[in-house]
């Protein structure tokens, strides 16, 4: 029920973002400046990137939680959040690349922001490869937790490139929006995708708990058959 409410709320908020984005933003660029904050893509790219980075923060916290408490719940939270982080990172890399082709005339450039974001994506894909190669559940959860904590090192680097690196990718534009319509659209987008993240996180946890229940029932069946 809680999951359904969150997913429905996020769908409504995403539609609201779409409406604000289509109705308010195009009318602002009367001088035809072509600045990124006047592009409707900006108001999807930023919220998706925010959710990706937030998802990896949750992996970091849940991984510490696992190493501290050693309960399967924290491992499930970390794994689910890492899945969402990879999905949202893929989306912001692809949307960014599409916009780069329009704004810079190239799909990709090796500037600090893009490279550190790609490295982030690779780190968390490797997180799943690591999980896939370890068969013991306890060892898998422990190794993944350590990897989840170490992998988080790249997140502050991605954020710092906003303020430090002055390259092709725009810097901290999102913190200097000067029109209320821009702020309203961006805040709605960030809120919409945050609610979506929470809905999908709870859904993912619920799925993994169902899978654990299934494994338990199968074990019971096997015991019955053998007994």
């Amino acid at each position: 029920m809680r999951i359904r409410i969150l997913l429905i709320l996020s769908a409504i908020l995403i539609l609201a973002t779409l409406a604000l984005d289509m109705l308010l933003i195009p009318s602002l660029d009367t001088q035809n400046t072509g600045f990124i904050q006047y592009s409707p893509v900006f108001y999807w790219h930023i919220p998706v990137a925010w959710v990706a980075l937030f998802a990896f923060l949750c992996v970091f916290i849940a991984s510490i939680g696992y190493l501290w408490k050693r309960t399967a719940f924290w491992d499930i939270v970390a794994m689910t959040s890492a899945e969402l982080g990879v999905v949202f990172t893929s989306l912001f890399l692809v949307t960014g690349s599409i916009w780069a082709k329009f704004a810079w005339g190239t799909w990709w450039t090796w500037d600090a922001r893009l490279t550190s974001s790609l490295v982030l994506w690779i780190i968390y894909v490797a997180y799943f490869l690591l999980r896939a190669y370890i068969s013991s559940p306890e060892q898998r959860a422990r190794f993944a937790a350590v990897f989840g904590i170490l992998g988080f090192v790249d997140v502050p680097i991605v954020i710092m490139t906003l303020f430090v690196a002055k390259e092709m990718h725009p810097g901290d534009v999102a913190f200097h929006l000067d029109k209320p319509q821009m702020i309203l659209t961006l805040v709605t987008g960030v809120f919409a995708f945050s609610v979506l993240y929470l809905g999908l996180l709870f859904f993912g946890i619920h799925l993994k708990e169902d899978a654990a229940e299934l494994t338990r029932l199968k074990g019971l069946m096997e015991d019955n058959d053998n007994g």
């Binding site: 779409l18 592009s39 409707p40 893509v41 999807w44 790219h45 998706v48 999905v87 893929s90 989306l91 692809v94 949307t95 599409i98 916009w99 082709k101 329009f102 979506l196």
Partner: peptide, 19 residues
Amino acid sequence: MDNAGYIVAAFAVVWVGLF
């Protein structure tokens, strides 16, 4: 592809990916 084309492509990636 013009500006609108890139915007539609970026939106499509987000919507289709999430769907």
